[in-house]
């Protein structure tokens, strides 16, 4: 880690709702600290109700925390901004505009001085990146769920925000479509070097996409317990990432957290609120690998060569 300041730092963020019957406030999450480096892809996983979406909305400037704040490039986040693009789970496309016009909408807001041709060319470039070059003139109602989410992703990337916030973007999609769009997301992300903060419920999705996975304990009073480094080489591909020897170590670690420890840790009172940094693969670098895993590993190298 360098001393360089992170792009975004979330400091001591808490959210509480007043309880309806004058009891103590309902604290959703407490003292959440996150640092996002420039160009990093960070996923956050936790059970429903732990406040992931609230954290994302605070980052976006659409919601306010009860205490603590978000600092981006030395300035406190107050209200929404084009520097922080958001992709919502339900796509949030304007149904009266075509796919292209929806992307134009974002581009025009971002680059108000551009001519109509410039806007359109820029939008088309991003729609092509997500594989929608032939369906640009259709309205969202004429597109499948996956295509709509592609338009939404294209709109977000086309505005070139400094931080991209994805709120479970693939939550409503079937597994096949999800896989295809994940690949497209990897492609467009590696071309743009965006900083991405993404909520997901899908452990495999997190491992495929993220540099780091933040694990949240169960609410109320949820906190970020661990920051798991995903130490797998890039570019990653859905088809062969599972053959990497570290994959299941990471996966088991994440699943174990969600199934067992997220509840236990929630009950434990701790004074230290910065997440533990974990790398489930760091013990396998020098040790001789068990032979069966070696076999799998070498097999996976052959088709790639």
């Amino acid at each position: 880690m360098t001393d360089k300041k992170p792009l975004v730092s979330v400091e001591g963020l808490s959210k509480a709702y007043p309880s309806p019957n004058k009891g103590p406030d309902l604290v959703v999450f407490k003292d959440v600290n996150i640092a996002l480096e420039k160009g990093e892809f960070v996923c956050i996983i936790g059970h429903s109700g732990c406040g992931k979406s609230t954290i994302l909305n605070v980052l976006a400037g659409l919601d306010e925390a009860s205490s603590g704040g978000v600092i981006m490039e030395g300035k406190e986040v107050a209200g929404p901004s084009l520097d922080r693009g958001v992709v919502f789970q339900n796509y949030s496309l304007m149904p009266w505009l075509s796919a292209l016009q929806n992307v134009n909408f974002g581009v025009r807001a971002r680059f108000p001085s551009w001519s109509a041709e410039q806007v359109e060319a820029h939008s088309k470039k991003y729609l092509e990146m997500v594989g929608l070059s032939t369906t640009m003139d259709r309205k969202p109602s004429q597109l499948s769920g996956g295509m709509r989410q592609r338009v939404s992703i294209a709109r977000a990337f086309a505005t070139q925000p400094k931080l991209l916030l994805l709120d479970e973007p693939f939550g409503a999609l079937d597994a096949l479509t999800r896989g295809i769009i994940q690949d497209e997301l990897i492609k467009i992300w590696s071309e743009s070097q965006q900083t991405v903060f993404m909520i997901t419920h899908d452990v495999d999705e997190a491992i495929l996409l993220a540099d780091r996975v933040l694990l949240m304990t169960n609410g109320p009073e949820a906190k970020i317990a661990e920051s798991v480094t995903i130490n797998l080489p890039r570019p990653r591909q859905r088809s062969n990432i599972i053959e990497h020897p570290g994959y299941y170590k990471i996966r088991n670690h994440l699943v174990d957290f969600l199934v067992n420890r997220s509840g236990e840790l929630a009950l434990r009172e701790s004074s230290d609120n910065s997440p533990v940094i974990v790398d489930p693969t760091d013990d396998m670098t020098d040790e001789p690998e068990p032979t069966d895993i070696k076999l799998v590993a070498s097999e996976s190298e052959q088709p790639a060569a």
Binding site: A60, G61, L62, G79, P80, S81, L82, R84, G85, V86, F88, N90, S92, M94, F105, G106, A109, R110, T159
Partner: peptide, 12 residues
């Protein structure tokens, strides 16, 4: 409200 939020995040 989604569309309003889209407008907000685009600083309209």
């Amino acid at each position: 409200s989604d569309w309003i939020r889209v407008a907000q995040t685009h600083e309209l």
